[in-house]
Design a protein around this nucleic acid. Structure first.
Length: 655
DNA sequence: CATATAAAGTTTTTT
DNA sequence: ACTTTATATG
C-alpha cells in the first residue's frame, strides 16, 4: 500500500472477514480504490456488496461517516446500502450523507439559495408543474403572434429540448438538431420562451428538477470559497449508477471531490438507459481514459443461471466497453421464447406460465413481468384482474402525481411559498365559478398586495368577494395553523373542503378519499411542512399501502424495464418484444437503437432462474406501427438476433 | 366573456 | 385512464 499516494499513512486495517465475504475482484476494488477510481460492475456481480464493504472499509480506517458522501440513483438504494453497512460494521453512521443527486442538491440549495437569487423556501416543480409553467411562458410569448403561434412547438416539446440542452451542456441549436431537427426554424422562438420560463421560475420562487442540478453546479463553480468549504468536508465521494449520470452531475461530483480528490464511481455502461434525460454512458468511457484513474472490473455473475448468462453475453450492447460475464451458478433451464398470435393470446400465455410456476411452488413475489412502456401492460392487467392474480405496479403514475393528491399538496405549497403561481391556480380552480382567467387575476392581486408588504391574512380578507369567499375563508383557517404538523393541515383541508369536492366530482371518490387518508398518515411522520414537501417531490416511491400490515403481500411485479433497474426475480417474463413495442417505435425512427439494446440487456439480466420472452405474430400492438416499415426490418427485432442454440422456442395459442 | 360540459385524442422511458 | 379540444350555457 506504500504506493497509494499517502492516503493512509499507516497500514490499512482490513477485518479478516472481508476476505471471506468478497471474491478476488470485489476484494481488490474495495481495498485498492482510492483517488479517482472506476469500478465497472456487470449485472449480478455484487455491486451493492462492493459499495457496502467500501464504506465499511473507510469506517474501519477511521474515516468519519460525516466525511463520506454516497450518491445513488434512487433514495431506496441509498437506504438499503446504509442498512447493510450498519450490519457489516455494527456501527451507527451518524452524519453520513447518502441519497440521490437531487436530494443532495436540494440540501445544498436550501442553505445557499440567496446566493443565486432564490428564497430558501423555493418550490420544486415536478414535471407536470414544469409543463404548466412552460405553457404560461409559451402563451405569454405567443400572445401577439397570431396564427404563427400555432406552429410553434408545444410546451412539452420545448421542455424536452431545453432539458436536454441543460443536462448535456450543449447549445440550444445543437440540442434541437439532435432531438428534432425539423424544429430548427423555431430556434429563436424556443430561445425566447426559454428565457421567459427562466424569468417565471424566479418570479414564483421555484426550481425544476434540472435547476436543482444546474444551480448547484453553478454555485460550486462560481464561489471558490464555498467550493473549498464543501469539498473539504467530503473525504470520499462515491457515485453509484455512474452510467446514468449526465454532464452536470459529473461536474458536481468532480467539484465535490475537488479538495480530497477521492472520487469512486461505480456503474455499468451496458446498463445506461436514461439518455433521454441527458445521461451519458460515455461518462464511463471518458472517466476510463483519464489519467490516474484506477480501473476495476467485477464481472462474475452470481445472479443468473449459466443458460441465462450465456444469452446475456450474446446480447451485450454493441456500444459497450468490451466485457464477458462468468457464470457461477449451477445449470438449470434455457431461456424460452414464446410466440403468440396477438396480445390477447400473449396474456393467456403469461397466465399459463404463472399458473405453472405457482403449481411448482414458486411465490408470486418471485415473478416479474417487464415491458417497454406502460401501455403494453394494459390488456395483461385486465386478464390478471379477471383471474384474481395479485399483482403490483412498480412504475406508472406515481401516487404523488394523481390529481387528488396534487390538489391537496398545492394547498400546502402556497402556505409555504405564497409566490407559487402554479399551485395557486390549481387550488383556485377547484372552486365553482373560477377558471384559469379568474385564478390568474386573483393570483396577480395577491402578489401585488404581498409586494406592498401587506400581511397575507389581511390580503385574504381584503380580496374576499362572493366568488372567492369560500377559498379565502378556508385558506385563512389553515394559514393560521401553517406551523402545525403537515398532517393537521391535510386533515383540515380534507375535512373542511376536499372530501365534499371529491364526492361531488369523482366517480371513484371512495378510493380517492382513501388515498388522501393514507396520504395524511404518511405525512404524520413529518413535523415540518417544508421538509414534507421536499420529500414528496424528490422521493420516487411512496409506500401507498397501510404500514400496519407488516406481513409482506405475495404478488407479482409488473413494471417497465426502467422501473426494474437494480432489481431481480427468480422468474422474469418480458412481454411484447416486437419491433415497434420493444424496441420502441420512436426509438427506431430516431435511430436510437443503442439505447434499446441496453434496455433489453437490463431486462434479461434481471432473471435469476427462468427467463421468458414473448412476442406476437401480428407484430406491434400499436396499429399505427403494425404495417409500417418498422415491422418488416429484422435488424429491429431482438428475437432475430438471438442465436437458436441459446434458447427454446415455442408457439403457443390457437392456430 | 368565462366556465362547464361533452366529445375526441393520446401513450417511451422518470429524478 | 386521462388530457386536450370543441361546443353549450350562464
Amino acid at each position: 500500500m506504500l504506493e497509494n499516494e499517502g492516503v493512509f499513512e499507516i497500514q490499512p486495517k482490513i477485518p479478516a472477514f472481508f476476505k471471506e465475504e468478497l471474491d478476488e475482484e470485489q476484494y481488490e476494488s474495495v481495498i485498492k480504490s482510492n483517488g479517482k477510481s472506476l469500478i465497472i460492475a456487470g449485472p449480478g456481480s455484487g455491486k451493492t456488496r462492493v459499495i457496502t464493504y467500501k464504506i465499511a472499509y473507510l469506517i474501519y480506517n477511521d474515516i468519519k461517516p460525516e466525511n463520506i458522501l454516497l450518491l445513488t440513483f434512487t433514495r431506496a438504494a441509498a437506504k438499503q446500502m446504509i442498512e447493510r453497512v450498519k450490519n457489516v460494521t455494527n456501527m451507527e453512521l451518524n452524519g453520513m450523507m447518502a441519497g440521490t443527486f437531487h436530494h443532495f442538491c436540494n440540501y445544498i440549495l436550501r442553505v445557499y439559495a440567496s446566493k443565486i437569487g432564490f428564497n430558501n423556501n423555493f418550490t420544486i416543480l415536478d414535471s407536470e408543474d414544469s409543463k404548466d409553467l412552460m405553457k404560461i411562458a409559451r402563451n405569454e410569448y405567443c400572445e401577439k403572434l397570431g396564427d404563427y403561434a400555432k406552429k410553434i412547438p408545444k410546451e412539452n416539446v420545448i421542455l424536452k429540448i431545453i432539458s436536454y440542452s441543460s443536462n448535456t451542456l450543449k447549445s440550444l441549436r445543437e440540442s434541437i438538431l439532435e432531438i428534432s431537427s425539423f424544429l430548427i426554424e423555431y430556434e429563436n422562438d424556443i430561445e425566447q420562451i426559454w428565457i421567459k420560463y427562466q424569468e417565471l421560475k424566479k418570479e414564483i420562487n421555484a426550481m425544476d428538477y434540472d435547476d436543482l442540478l444546474i444551480n448547484t453546479a453553478m454555485l460550486l463553480k462560481s464561489d471558490k470559497e464555498l467550493l473549498k468549504y464543501i469539498s473539504k468536508r467530503y473525504r470520499y465521494v462515491l457515485v453509484d449508477e455512474f452510467q446514468d449520470t449526465n454532464k452536470i452531475q459529473l461536474e458536481i461530483v468532480e467539484a465535490l471531490s475537488d479538495y480530497h480528490k477521492n472520487l469512486i464511481a461505480v456503474g455499468d455502461d451496458s446498463q445506461s438507459i436514461y439518455s433521454f434525460r441527458g445521461a451519458r454512458f460515455e461518462n464511463i468511457k471518458d472517466f476510463m481514459d483519464e489519467k490516474n484513474v484506477k480501473l476495476f472490473k467485477i464481472q462474475t455473475n452470481y445472479r443468473s443461471t449459466p443458460e441465462i448468462v450465456n444469452l446475456i453475453n450474446d446480447m451485450i450492447p454493441t456500444s459497450s466497453v468490451k466485457k464477458h460475464l462468468n457464470a457461477k451458478r449451477k445449470p438449470y433451464l434455457k431461456p424460452t421464447i414464446i410466440e403468440t398470435f396477438d396480445d390477447l393470446e400473449q396474456s393467456e400465455a403469461v397466465i399459463k406460465i404463472i399458473d405453472e410456476k405457482i403449481e411448482e411452488g414458486i411465490e408470486y413475489n418471485d415473478i416479474a413481468i417487464l415491458y417497454r412502456s406502460h401501455a403494453l401492460s394494459m390488456s395483461l392487467q385486465q386478464k390478471l384482474d379477471s383471474k384474481l392474480i395479485p399483482y403490483k405496479l412498480l412504475s406508472g403514475k406515481r401516487f404523488i402525481e394523481t390529481r387528488h393528491i396534487k390538489d391537496i399538496l398545492s394547498f400546502l405549497k402556497i402556505l409555504y411559498n405564497p409566490y407559487d403561481k402554479i399551485s395557486w391556480i390549481r387550488v383556485m380552480k377547484l372552486f365553482p365559478g373560477i377558471g384559469t382567467k379568474t385564478a390568474v387575476r386573483n393570483y396577480e392581486s395577491i402578489i401585488s398586495n404581498l409586494s406592498e408588504g401587506i400581511n397575507i391574512l389581511d390580503i385574504f380578507d381584503k380580496l374576499s368577494n362572493k366568488k372567492t369567499k369560500d377559498i379565502y375563508e378556508l385558506l385563512t383557517k389553515i394559514y393560521k395553523k401553517r406551523d402545525d404538523k403537515p398532517q393537521n393541515l391535510i386533515n383540515e383541508i380534507y375535512e373542511n373542503f376536499y372530501k365534499e369536492y371529491s364526492n361531488l366530482n369523482y366517480k371513484n371518490s371512495r378510493s380517492r378519499n382513501m388515498d388522501i387518508e393514507r396520504f395524511s398518515e404518511i405525512s404524520s411522520k413529518y413535523e415540518n411542512t417544508g421538509k414534507f414537501l421536499e420529500d414528496m417531490t424528490l422521493s420516487e416511491n411512496i409506500e401507498v399501502r397501510p404500514s400496519d400490515k407488516n406481513d409482506k403481500k405475495d404478488e407479482i411485479t409488473l413494471t417497465t424495464v426502467h422501473g426494474s433497474k437494480g432489481l431481480e426475480w427468480k422468474v422474469v417474463i418480458i412481454i411484447s418484444a416486437n419491433p415497434g413495442d420493444f424496441p420502441n417505435g420512436m426509438a427506431i425512427k430516431e435511430k436510437n437503437l443503442d439505447e434499446e439494446e441496453r434496455l433489453f440487456y437490463v431486462a434479461i439480466t434481471r432473471a435469476k432462474d427462468e427467463l421468458y420472452i414473448l412476442k406476437q405474430t401480428t407484430g406491434s400492438t400499436n396499429p399505427y406501427l403494425r404495417n409500417s416499415f418498422v415491422f418488416i426490418k429484422s435488424e429491429n427485432d431482438f428475437i432475430k438476433k438471438i442465436s437458436e442454440d441459446k434458447v427454446n422456442k415455442m408457439r403457443v395459442g390457437y392456430l
